[in-house]
């Protein structure tokens, strides 16, 4: 799994590539904790290049969404890969997360505040 982090206008962008599973989800959790603790109000996670995400990855995203809500931050999942979409549908979690069809849409939502 590779994680790239960029500061964008009005948000932080995290691009995740590869597999999010038992061996890599702790690293994703650490990145998210570091970012959500900062001042910016919104975080966008680009999941377009995630080949495989399992229940440990979903657990990290649920924790991050809960944390973001509690502390007045916005978490947006953007551009889901087919596998990530399938997993979220199976878990019936599409309604729990804020999901943008593509990255541009997510960044637009951030700029709009």
């Amino acid at each position: 799994m590779n994680i790239r982090r960029e500061a964008r206008e009005a948000c932080e962008l995290l691009t995740v590539e590869g597999d999010i599973d038992l061996s890599t989800s702790p690293s994703l959790r650490k990145h998210l904790e570091g970012i959500l603790d900062r001042e910016r109000t919104s975080l966008v996670i680009d999941l377009s290049s995630v080949r495989h995400m399992d229940s440990s990855g979903i657990a990290v995203l649920i924790e991050a969404e809960r944390w973001a809500r509690k502390h007045g931050r916005r978490l947006l999942l953007a551009s889901l890969s087919d596998q990530v979409r399938m997993v979220l549908e199976l878990a019936r979690l599409q309604g729990f997360f804020s999901i943008a069809e593509d990255l541009e849409g997510a960044l637009r939502l951030c700029r709009a505040g």
Partner: peptide, 11 residues
């Protein structure tokens, strides 16, 4: 019950 964990066996 939306919470981390316990989804693996469901999948």
């Amino acid at each position: 019950d939306i919470r981390p964990g316990g989804l693996g066996t469901y999948f």
